[in-house]
Design a protein around this nucleic acid. Structure first.
Length: 199
DNA sequence: CCCTGATTCGC
DNA sequence: GCGAATCAGG
């Protein structure tokens, strides 16, 4: 695969959105994350300053020449692919990630404890073995936060999202599934077993 | 171990 | 210009 205008544009877009090189590579297809990173550098946008979030490390000590006025970090003039850019007058950083932590407090205030919960299976419709397995495995769970989940961590939620005691299993997922082996067991039941519960 | 970006260097 | 290999870190 080659770097067509389209692909470069997508690369620029995703990169400025803060997507990781591997995610971009996956999206583009036919390239590795190394290729993406290489391209990013060649394009001169390694410094993700496309969206207003830039962390300029002050050149600090410059004992030599008091000249060389390089005020501007990067030359603009990017025709297309221009994502929404915030031109902060001074040095205001408004990274999207910054909003995340504040949410837990807000959410706690809004959602009444113990109401709308994820798929938590009710005990009486699952095989005892599977249940036992789950309660066992939840002791070994990695207790990941939402942010820590990846494609290969079990995404089974445990606990009440409205409380501090909430986390995701985080154990290695079963191939192709979103959950670990134990949780796959309770998440995907053969239709036969959910037939005729006492009603 | 999983992941991240940065750099190098033969092609 | 390209990107695998490597490096340096979280």
């Amino acid at each position: 695969m080659s770097w067509t205008d389209e692909r470069v544009e997508l690369l620029k877009k995703m990169w400025s959105e803060g997507q990781s090189a591997s995610q971009i590579a996956k999206e583009l297809g036919g390239v590795t994350r190394n290729a993406v990173i290489g391209k990013v550098h060649r394009l001169g946008l390694s410094n993700r300053s496309g969206g207003g979030t830039a962390q300029q490390a002050a050149p600090a000590a410059a004992p030599a020449k008091p000249e060389t006025a390089k005020a501007k970090p990067a030359a603009p003039a990017t025709p297309a692919a221009a994502a929404p850019k915030r031109e902060a007058p001074a040095e205001t950083r408004s990274a999207p990630e910054t909003a995340a932590p504040a949410m837990s407090a807000a959410r706690r205030a809004i959602i009444p404890a113990g109401q709308p919960l994820p798929p938590q299976p009710s005990a009486n419709e699952i095989s005892p073995e599977a249940l036992a397995k789950v309660s066992e495995i939840e002791k070994k769970a990695k207790r990941l936060t939402l942010m820590e989940l990846t494609e290969r961590t079990c995404k089974w939620p445990v606990g009440d999202p409205a409380t501090e005691d909430f986390w995701f299993c985080g154990l290695p997922v079963q191939q192709g599934k979103p959950y670990c082996e134990a949780h796959v067991g309770v998440a995907f039941q053969p239709m036969s077993s959910r037939r005729d519960r006492k009603r």
